[in-house]
Nucleic acid binder design. Structure first.
Ligand SMILES: [Zn+2]
Ligand SMILES: [Zn+2]
Ligand SMILES: [Zn+2]
Ligand SMILES: [Zn+2]
Lengths: 624, 624
DNA sequence: GGGCGTTCAGAAAGTTCA
DNA sequence: TGAACTTTCTGAACGCCC
């Protein structure tokens, strides 16, 4: 009995397979198979002994067996498992219809002679109404297939994996049922996917609305049909599926008004974010990468833009500044004028640089000011990392004045300049460690360091920001860009480590910047003749929430000062440069010279107004 | 009879399942089948031989058969095989059933006027509600059968072996009752087996979570939304799914079916990414936030889902495991069995947990395996952080076995367990520092730590990944979620610092995990009696690119080993648990016991195949 | 009328708890 | 052990668009 059952199995399966592959509704093989199993049953093995017994009901089976046994090989029978009466009828029909051409076209209305409801599901033998997902199936198999075709073929059959599926047994082994569905040619591609579904639903909804409006012509319904459906018309059927879309449904052509396709413009980091969250946009068809992740087009463009601006603006010290720096370097290498001169020059260039970035344009005017105001120290300090030369322990940068030569400002000079101030040396030492650490972590990668500057620049926690979300998004974009950049230059394995290491080090920057700003405060405090403008500027970075408490560095009264550093001559230049080019603070501040330093409110409106003026005045230069 | 019973086991189901959709217990088809089988039985097979013999007690059966044969077609049954005269039948049904309005306005309610309880359990005669395990039984017999069908038939009847089973006597003789169950045709094949059970539970868990999340977080939404998600067909793939599947499935259509509106389903982290890149979607009209950034709805939902799954799955140690851990803790606190037992239990739970996450569903089967395979050690170690208790310097977690008490496993025990191995103690010490550092950085924030586990889990640089982009995107989503979480619990100013600090510490994890995996390698190496399966498992995490070079820890030949730790008894449990529940490795691995350890290729295909089997086998449980 | 999807009550598993 | 309950699956009936 065991052996027989196996043979029955294979017979049955080949039966269904062939029936599907020939696309005729039934094949001789199928009929023969039934005959076989019937014969098996007749020989004494109970039909039920065979786990593969295709349990069509008994009478059908015997009928089929009889027909098969008659040797006529009902080749054209549309069904193997018809009930007795039906089979008789179809036998008659068969004799009329005659042999069907074997290459019968796919699925032309086969209602040639017999009504469709005579057909039987190719999966389970239940009565079928027509094609479902490209096979003749019953309603239940149709639903079953729709529900399960996309589920992963996970479940294993509990039995041999070749259970026979009949109208009675179909619900016992879904894996085998599903398998058979595929076997007989059901196509899961014909199941509507989610977006097609949405379309369909929307269309339905649309039509229904129209019909409702036109037929009902109730005054309330017509003008605001959308609203009515949104609020859940109680009289209407509650259609769950539609419910979901109602909020986004516009009665008429959503599609038309929608299609703001793609900003053909220069991409911003926000474009990158979209690309990353989208997944479709990735131009590379590859799903994976090898050691180095290739850059997407967007990334390349963004970084190229940054690189160009970097070269043209940030690294392009103008001659005046260069001269200035050169002369300061020779005359007062260790005075505080040196860093002031340099940073002033840089701040100008950096602001110009930032204004070249497309996304800066999208920021509120006030917030542009706030970003610059709140981040001066941060990006100045980050710049230090970028121009640091570890061999020389110096900052080095091209100098136009000395014709291609490089300026080189030893860090030691800074130490010395600040030695007169409390904790000045320690602070510089901290900064040095910070720089060195960063340099190691980044391997001096200028692009990475520039991106870090930008990430620091677009810091959503700067004080007074009006739209933190926007800044946050931009920052996220640059973070993503940095990530991608690193992944493109570091092997996958190390990329993450490097990336997070770099990001993490920014935290230290925050505290260093705070201390530097405090220190500068003191510097300004000590130089009475220092123009109030300078004070204001240094106070810029002081306005952060935590910054209102004066740093502990400066709390106790200072000891009798060493020869107080003086910033006489250059200060004028510094101030005038700022006022003329970058900041253009109101003249009144420059003129009100000897005003005693008093702890003004941290966010003096005048400053903001002034800086805003600068930004606005140059707004036309912003890249589109 | 013996032989036959075996065949019964493997045999397929009965042809006599009555038409399930009807309220009648017997459909004409079934009746006919019964007639057949009865005939077959008459030819010599005993009744209990036939797994399909639906042995209603004699009278009923013959009645049913007669009814079917007589063609009277019990009108109340809208049976499928009744093709013609359906209207007549239903009309008849109407007249019988009661005053259903003739205009059949709605779905027919099928208010059975004659309740089913007129049917009697075929085992005990109690009232029956329907079919259970393919026979008409009462509830108690159903439960009885489920509980005992697979128990050994050893128990002998205390009486003659032919006790009569009635509603009163049924509890007196289990063996006879069970025998009768089989006799009347109950099929133990229809009892869900272990893996099916697991799937079912997982699915329930998933759905519960989803429902909970959607209801909990959409308080403002319409009350129907819950219902829609509840009754909606599961398994439907969301828009995100399609996005994720991009090139994999529909190379062409994807682009066409773009205009998908809003993913109405449970959000994934990808939804979050979209939201973040979108900018318009931010539901809060606010552009800024104060100290603590409010969470968007998406974030809330995502985290709520995670939290629920975390509580229900990860932190829900089942009793068996709990027992095991308890007993191990008392007996062999310092042996290596302890960590093995615990981690095994955790790995199972973690895999379940991950499978509850909506986005996991969108990942390629192979990649699911690869993620788990490549990350076992990582997420085990991260788990350590989550359950670390700094006061006790222990891992602590709830124990069901000891009724709400907590297990507490001192880290020192781990040190001691590994003291026999080279560098074991140092490694544990490193791990301890890692844990403590993380604990400080996160302030023990469980959500943050869980997110970090997930970030580590979705690591695009795991070996052999087929779609790194997809994993990368998911990881980015979780990183974003972590960021948002931290921003919501930390003041803006510190949030970034904390966030990057936490992220950065993951780098250290990588190296610790590598070393641990190497160490486990050695452990496996030393214990010859250790089952090869165990070795394979520990090798799982060894497949990373950099992992092929053996850690320097273990390069030189080891000194004569101290008393080699042995993992005898528990290992069996360990292995069997793994094989049965979580990993289900191929039996061959379990049986081939004494195979000498040899350096197999790092990515033994068998492992992958095995693990894939696990994942696939449970795939239907995945939330849609 | 063909062929999709949607609905929803009912069948049949498991789970809980006294 | 068993009554009561929960959950998932199933499929007949139906709605809609082409
Ligand atoms: Zn079917
Ligand atoms: Zn099967
Ligand atoms: Zn009973
Ligand atoms: Zn007995």
């Amino acid at each position: 009995a065991k052996r027989k059952s196996t043979s029955t199995t294979s017979a049955m399966y080949s039966a269904s397979v062939s029936s599907s592959s020939t696309s005729s509704l039934v094949s001789p093989a199928a009929a023969a198979a039934n005959a076989t199993s019937a014969a098996a049953a007749a020989t004494g093995a109970t039909a039920e002994d065979s786990p593969f017994f295709s349990a069509f009901n008994g009478t059908e089976q015997s009928t089929a067996a009889a027909a098969g046994a008659s040797g006529l090989g009902r080749a054209s029978s549309p069904d193997t498992s018809q009930s007795a009466s039906e089979s008789a009828a179809s036998a008659a029909a068969d004799s009329v219809v005659g042999p069907r051409s074997p290459h019968r076209k796919r699925r032309y209305k086969m209602q040639l002679s017999q009504p469709l409801d005579q057909y039987r599901c190719h999966v389970c033998g239940d009565k079928a109404l027509g094609f479902n997902f490209d096979a003749v199936t019953c309603e239940s198999c149709k639903a079953f297939f729709r529900r399960n075709a996309f589920k992963n073929m996970d479940m294993k059959c509990n039995f041999s994996g070749s259970c026979s599926i009949s109208i009675n047994t179909r619900k016992f082994c879904s894996p085998c049922r599903l398998k058979k569905c595929f076997l007989i040619g059901m196509k899961k591609e014909l199941i509507l996917n989610e977006s097609q579904l949405q379309q369909r639903r929307q269309k339905t909804l649309c039509n229904r609305n129209r019909r409702y409006v036109t037929t009902a012509t109730t005054a309330s319904a017509s003008p605001i049909s959308r609203q009515s459906s949104t609020t859940g018309d109680p009289g209407r059927r509650s259609v769950c599926a539609y419910k979901l879309e109602e909020s986004s449904f516009y009665p008429d052509e959503t599609a038309l008004s929608e299609p703001s396709v793609e900003p053909p413009q220069r991409p911003t980091v926000l474009t990158l974010l979209e690309e990353c969250s989208d997944g479709l946009a990735s131009s590379s068809s590859e799903c994976s990468w090898d050691l180095y992740r290739p850059l997407s087009d967007t990334c390349t463009q963004l970084m190229e833009g940054i690189r160009v601006s970097l070269d043209n603006v940030v690294n392009n010290v103008n001659e005046t500044d260069s001269e200035q720096i050169s002369s300061t370097a020779t005359d007062k290498a260790t005075s505080l004028e040196m860093p002031f001169t340099i940073t002033l020059s840089f701040v100008q260039r950096f602001v110009s640089f930032v204004k070249c970035l497309p996304e800066f344009n999208y920021i509120d005017m006030d917030d542009r000011v706030n970003l610059i105001k709140g981040g001066v120290f941060h990006f100045i300090l980050m710049r230090g990392v970028a121009i640091y030369n570890p061999e020389l322990d110096s900052f080095t940068f091209l100098s136009k004045a000395s014709s291609g030569h490089r300026h080189s400002v030893p860090l030691a000079a800074l130490t010395q300049s600040l030695s007169a101030y409390p904790s000045g040396q320690q602070l510089v030492e901290r900064y040095r460690r910070f720089i060195i650490g960063y340099h190691r972590a980044s391997s001096g990668d200028q692009m990475a360091l520039t991106l870090l500057q930008l990430i620091e620049f677009y810091n959503p926690s700067r004080p007074l920001l009006r739209n933190m979300h926007r800044i946050d998004r931009i920052q996220a974009g640059y973070i993503m860009l940095l990530k991608r950049h690193i992944e493109s230059v570091q092997p996958t394995q190390q990329a993450r480590r490097v990336f997070f290491d770099l990001m993490n080090r920014l935290s230290e920057l925050d505290s260093i910047a705070t201390d530097f700003s405090q220190l500068c405060h003191v510097v300004g405090f000590r130089c009475e003749e220092l123009n109030p403008l300078l004070l204001e500027i240094f106070e810029l970075s002081n306005g952060r929430p935590g910054g209102s408490r004066p740093s502990s560095l400066f709390e106790q009264p200072l000891p009798p000062p060493p020869p107080p550093p003086r910033l006489p001559t250059q200060c004028g230049t510094f101030i005038s440069t700022i006022s003329s080019c970058t900041l253009r603070l109101r003249p009144s501040f420059i003129s009100s010279n000897s005003r005693p330093y008093s702890r003004r409110p941290i966010t003096s409106p005048s400053i903001i107004a002034s800086i805003r003026e600068v930004i606005i005045s140059n707004a036309s230069q912003l890249c589109p």
